[in-house]
Amino acid sequence: MEGRAASAHWTAVFATALACTLPSGHSPARAGPALAQYEIKEIGSTPGAIEIQSQNDFSFGNPTRRFTTNDDGELTADENSVSRQREGLEIEMGLTSFVKLRLGVEFEQERIDDPTTFGTANAFNALRFDSYGAETIWTLLPRKGDGFGIGVLIEYEQSAHADESSQLNVGPIFEWQNGRWSAAFNPILTKHFGGEGNDEGKRDNKIDFGYAARIMYRTSEQFAAAVEAYGTIDRIGSTGSPNNASRMFGDFDQHRIGPVLYWTFEDDDAKGDDEKNDGREIETTLGLGALVGLNENTPAVTMKLSLEVDF
């Protein structure tokens, strides 16, 4: 397949999938900690470049939910953000040499938000369309080879469920490289908007703090080994208006860390014919890792599986 034609083909496929899954109206994320995909954001952009991404995670040993009942027998359960699996599909486009844009959709098998019986308190919904969004990354200080680089991430995420809020994620991106070693750090502030109100009718427009960090060693052009960490501080200070469940059980910080292996390979056929691929190589990167939970609010193990195809 020709490089430019392949890019156009995948762009059309993604746009069609996105259009088919978008709901007809806005539907204001859960009151628990905001959980981003387990991915390290990277600066740098090539005008006209296209990247297709699939970001997936699977959690095991999820924490047991806490709950209580009132005098009328009504059940109130904690609102920790817990999922069994998440599947993300994204397309990234290089707009200029310092700006790139990404559009994405996400499917999630999450714990039932408002269980009505003890038996359903730890039950999960079926895998379903959960959210869609857009992000842009601006490179402020380019990194070419060894040295430091700095950028900024701005991301908006719209939930597909009426009782959940929208999210605005903003934060810097720091990169460093020295030979085969590299490191990255992405601290993020997440502002929640909308969603259901509490008993006083106030929406919990809180602010969370999240982070993603990586130290990586590239053993060859094809293989790299990394240690990655991801976490969320649920509710900074007294921001937002917590509901009854949040007041009863408090907020839920989550922290994960673990090894991730990456394998990068190129399409030899495309590489061998510059006329067909407009001088671009098709490069694919597979990532597989296991992230261990560091506190009782976090699943014991989260498996990370990623696929990225660059045109």
Rank of each mutant, 00 (worst) to 15 (best):
D268V: 14
R218H: 13
G237H: 00
K276Y: 15
P259W: 15
G279P: 01
D251A: 07
A245R: 03
V292C: 01
Q222A: 11
F265M: 08
A229T: 09
P242D: 05
T264S: 14
L261N: 06
A245P: 04
A270L: 04
D234I: 03
I236A: 05
G240I: 02
G250V: 06
D269S: 13
Y217W: 11
G231P: 08
N277E: 09
A245Q: 00
A226N: 03
A290Q: 04
H255V: 04
I236C: 04
D274Y: 11
D268L: 07
V260N: 03
E275R: 07
I233Y: 06
G279E: 03
G272N: 05
V260M: 05
G272Y: 10
M216D: 12
L291W: 01
L291T: 04
I233L: 10
F265I: 03
S220Y: 14
R214D: 08
P259Y: 03
F209I: 04
T284L: 00
E283N: 09
M248S: 08
D269N: 10
D234A: 00
G231N: 06
G240Y: 06
I282E: 01
L286I: 08
W263D: 02
T219M: 12
D267Y: 07
T264H: 02
N243F: 03
L288D: 10
G237R: 00
I215S: 10
F265S: 06
K276E: 10
Y230V: 11
I282L: 10
I215N: 04
D273C: 13
A229I: 00
D274F: 11
Q254S: 03
E228Y: 02
D269I: 09
V260T: 06
S238P: 07
K276C: 13
V292E: 01
Y211M: 04
S241Y: 11
S241H: 10
G250Q: 00
E228Q: 08
R256C: 12
H255A: 03
A224L: 00
L286A: 10
L286M: 14
D251R: 05
L291C: 01
A270N: 07
T219R: 15
T264Q: 09
L261P: 02
A229K: 06
M216G: 06
S241W: 06
N277Y: 04
P242M: 00
S241M: 05
S238R: 09
R235D: 07
V260Q: 01
T232S: 10
D269E: 15
T232D: 07
I236F: 00
M216W: 07
T232R: 01
A290L: 10
E281H: 12
D269L: 15
I236L: 13
D268E: 15
D273V: 13
M248L: 04
I236M: 13
Q254P: 01
F223R: 11
P259N: 05
A245N: 02
R256Y: 13
D278G: 12
I282R: 13
I282V: 12
D278Q: 14
N244G: 14
F265E: 09
Y262V: 09
T285G: 05
T285A: 10
G237A: 01
E275M: 05
L288G: 11
E266P: 09
S238I: 00
R280G: 01
Q254A: 02
S238D: 06
S246I: 15
